[in-house]
Amino acid sequence: MALTKFVAVVYVLLQYLLILSTQSESYIILSRQIVPGERPIDAIVLVPSISRALVQSGEYCKLTYQSLAHFVVDRQIHFYAIPSLESQPIKPIRNVVAFAVDEQQVRKPTPVSNPSLGYSAHVDPIDFCVVKRGGIAMFSLKDRLFYSREIPLPSGTSAVAARRTGRYLCFADRENYNIIDLEEAQLFPILPISQAPPGDNVKIKPHITVISDNEFLILSWTGASTLGLFITGSGDPVRGTLEWSSHPLGISLDYPYITTLLPDGTIEVHGVDLQTINQVIPPPSSASSPPPSPRAPPEVGVSQRLALIASVCGYYVPSSQRAAHLKKVPVKLLRTPTTL
């Protein structure tokens, strides 16, 4: 039996194959791809329905204007086939601030075909948005990349996070969550990322989670706790609200449950339908003391929980020894320079 997995190490994409047998288990590297320009990798979106991976990479570039130097991020989106990780002959998309693939299309499984029975699977293209400094570019992708149109943004509008479901895009700028109806090209702000009193200058990380084809969950810090608000694509609140004593480091949807990781290492599981707490997993006993601020993670300990990662198609432990193989393995993030 063999299973594959993908790893991004700074600017290198690695594909591993796990060989399972009755005698031994081992990983071997099947593919190694270096992102053009050796730019650090910011995000990877796997789209099983079209067997493609969208990889966002970027680096800081120094710009000078009227003797004033400042730095901006020059991000690009590259396209790879999965599971082979072969680079696709598609020109990268440049000047990317953020991008969002339609979540409903990301959740579609890999098409199944059976030529021996005389049928093949029908594959639809996927739609995604690219937020740039001046607008939102609309694309579709299958074997080729097609540009549709661009929706202009108000001057000075940027994006630090974005999620899309169907015709609706929810994105966070430096201060607010915003909703855009992509068909009507209408934008309206929804809720501040932080509602803390004036004088609280700590930046809060925005969280946007797609719940369904017409529903998002957004998180807002009040200065004393974090509220989770369910909204429709039209910006209307639905259901009730969720609340956390501190601002979550990570959030994951496994409907009908929302799982969050808090700064002190606590994991809380809420029910989406009734907005109740279903389970609380306390922090590891060896974790360090609670953070001085509800927004800042504590000093990393030996068993500190650092992140919460969602897996659209589930999570597998490909090992007959199960938990015995769930251990940390050191991987170099930077390659050692070659001495000539």
Rank of each mutant, 00 (worst) to 15 (best):
residue 229 L to Y: 14
residue 150 E to I: 09
residue 308 L to Q: 09
residue 63 L to E: 13
residue 160 V to R: 04
residue 130 V to N: 00
residue 137 A to H: 08
residue 68 L to F: 14
residue 34 I to F: 02
residue 53 A to G: 13
residue 171 F to P: 00
residue 7 V to L: 14
residue 232 T to V: 04
residue 51 S to D: 13
residue 123 V to A: 06
residue 53 A to V: 02
residue 328 K to Q: 09
residue 4 T to K: 08
residue 285 S to C: 11
residue 154 P to V: 10
residue 297 P to A: 03
residue 66 Q to K: 15
residue 254 D to N: 14
residue 166 G to D: 10
residue 109 P to V: 07
residue 166 G to H: 07
residue 291 P to T: 08
residue 230 F to L: 06
residue 242 L to H: 14
residue 27 Y to Q: 06
residue 331 V to Q: 10
residue 94 R to I: 05
residue 113 S to P: 04
residue 272 V to S: 09
residue 45 V to W: 01
residue 49 S to D: 07
residue 10 V to N: 13
residue 182 L to A: 02
residue 22 T to I: 04
residue 37 G to W: 03
residue 313 C to M: 11
residue 269 V to Q: 13
residue 288 S to E: 09
residue 229 L to M: 13
residue 241 T to V: 14
residue 290 P to M: 06
residue 195 Q to K: 13
residue 209 T to F: 00
residue 318 P to T: 02
residue 79 F to E: 07
residue 183 E to F: 08
residue 173 D to K: 01
residue 80 Y to W: 13
residue 313 C to Y: 10
residue 115 P to S: 07
residue 247 H to K: 11
residue 104 Q to L: 12
residue 171 F to G: 00
residue 108 K to V: 10
residue 172 A to C: 08
residue 164 R to E: 05
residue 168 Y to C: 03
residue 198 P to F: 01
residue 88 Q to R: 11
residue 7 V to G: 03
residue 127 D to E: 12
residue 19 I to A: 10
residue 103 E to S: 12
residue 274 L to V: 08
residue 204 I to Q: 03
residue 308 L to I: 13
residue 241 T to M: 11
residue 78 H to S: 15
residue 133 R to F: 05
residue 220 S to T: 15
residue 95 N to W: 02
residue 18 L to N: 08
residue 130 V to T: 03
residue 58 G to F: 01
residue 304 Q to V: 04
residue 272 V to K: 05
residue 306 L to F: 09
residue 248 P to D: 04
residue 147 Y to I: 11
residue 194 S to T: 15
residue 224 A to I: 07
residue 12 V to D: 04
residue 22 T to W: 06
residue 146 F to T: 13
residue 55 V to M: 05
residue 271 G to H: 05
residue 193 I to E: 00
residue 172 A to Q: 04
residue 192 P to K: 08
residue 43 A to G: 01
residue 267 I to G: 02
residue 55 V to T: 09
residue 193 I to K: 00
residue 195 Q to C: 11
residue 55 V to Y: 02
residue 95 N to Q: 15
residue 103 E to G: 00
residue 194 S to I: 05
residue 14 L to W: 06
residue 225 S to Q: 10
residue 78 H to A: 07
residue 32 R to G: 06
residue 220 S to H: 05
residue 158 S to E: 14
residue 227 L to G: 01
residue 279 Q to V: 12
residue 246 S to H: 04
residue 298 P to N: 13
residue 243 E to Y: 07
residue 97 V to E: 07
residue 226 T to Y: 03
residue 37 G to F: 06
residue 237 P to D: 10
residue 191 L to W: 02
residue 313 C to N: 15
residue 200 D to V: 15
residue 235 G to V: 00
residue 185 A to K: 15
residue 333 L to F: 13
residue 219 L to Q: 05
residue 241 T to C: 11
residue 294 P to C: 04
residue 15 Q to S: 15
residue 111 P to T: 06
residue 226 T to K: 01
residue 276 T to G: 03
